[in-house]
Write a protein that binds this DNA or RNA. Structure first.
Length: 263
DNA sequence: TGTGATGTTGAATG
DNA sequence: GCATTCAACATCAC
């Protein structure tokens, strides 16, 4: 589910509910998603402490503890944070939960277990280690263009490469390509400066609007491709034909006749 | 009921 | 180093 705007929404929810409350206890139901520590170490690192702030870079969301440590929540495909005050509301695929002193539970739900949760002593060092590129919400024009320069990969592969720019996933990549009128399978290095500038501006506009609307896709503008991402739909504006194929290893939709293939 | 798909990523492979 | 493929996992739609 989660790309940059969705992760940002998760972060906002956490800021509202998870901060400034002492952690009473932590229960781990499935330790598979804990990637750098045991369930015991995870509980010990949290219990008795308080979340003081958050940080996000791309799809990586960090919750900082008063101890100086941070918890990294990477949501994978199906991770989500759910809040509840009654244990009867616990979701079926909760992997762990954090009980706060005011009676709220922070539940981490993840059916497919692709999420990764880490307990970090130094999140800045971790961000460096992972090699995340600049956040796609604020990436500047020169870094954006440099990401494409001289590359033989497809334009979509560049947008999805988290070490070049962090936060874009499969759906927003298609949206960006559509609005920039670029075919997602275009060769990255063959795009003109003008085309790259346009794609850069669309990237910022699309992500900012999605963030402002809390990633609630139902209220996205009608001319966004998102709503037409379906072979049986008529394309927005009625022009061209909606196509689907694998690009950069991911199912990709585009509009033939509207998005230019640059090779 | 089998098959192929999935809003992700890193390890493996060429 | 770069580009591509595949596995990790559970569920859902044909």
């Amino acid at each position: 589910m989660p790309e940059l705007p969705e992760v940002n929404t998760v972060r906002k929810g956490f800021e509202r509910i998870g901060l400034s409350q002492r952690i009473v206890s932590v229960q781990v139901h499935d330790d598979k998603i804990l990637r750098n520590c045991s369930a015991e170490a995870f509980c010990k690192g949290l219990e008795g402490h308080t979340f003081r702030g958050t940080y996000r870079r791309g799809k990586y969301f960090f919750a900082d503890l008063d101890s100086g440590a941070s918890v990294l929540f990477h949501l994978g495909m199906t991770g989500d944070i759910l809040y509840y005050s009654d244990e009867a509301e616990r979701s079926k695929h909760e992997r762990f939960c954090i009980a706060l002193e005011d009676g709220m539970y922070i539940g981490f739900d993840d059916p497919r277990k692709f999420a990764r949760i880490l307990l970090l002593q130094d999140r800045e060092a971790y961000v460096k280690e992972v090699g995340l590129g600049p956040d796609a919400l604020t990436i500047d024009k020169s870094a954006f263009r440099a990401a494409f320069k001289g590359r033989s990969a497809t334009a979509k592969a560049i947008l999805l490469n988290q070490s070049l720019m962090a936060g874009i996933g499969n759906l927003y990549a298609d949206e960006i390509c559509y609005q920039a009128r670029i075919h997602p399978a275009s060769r990255a290095g063959a795009l003109s400066t003008r085309q790259l500038n346009k794609m850069h501006q669309k990237t910022l506009d699309i992500l900012q609007l999605a963030v402002d609307q809390d990633a609630y896709y139902k209220i996205y503008p009608d001319d966004w491709f998102w709503k037409w991402r379906d072979l049986d739909a008529r394309p927005p504006g009625g022009k061209g034909k909606i196509m689907r194929d694998k690009v950069a290893g991911r199912t990709t939709y585009w509009i033939e006749g509207v998005q230019k293939l640059v090779k």
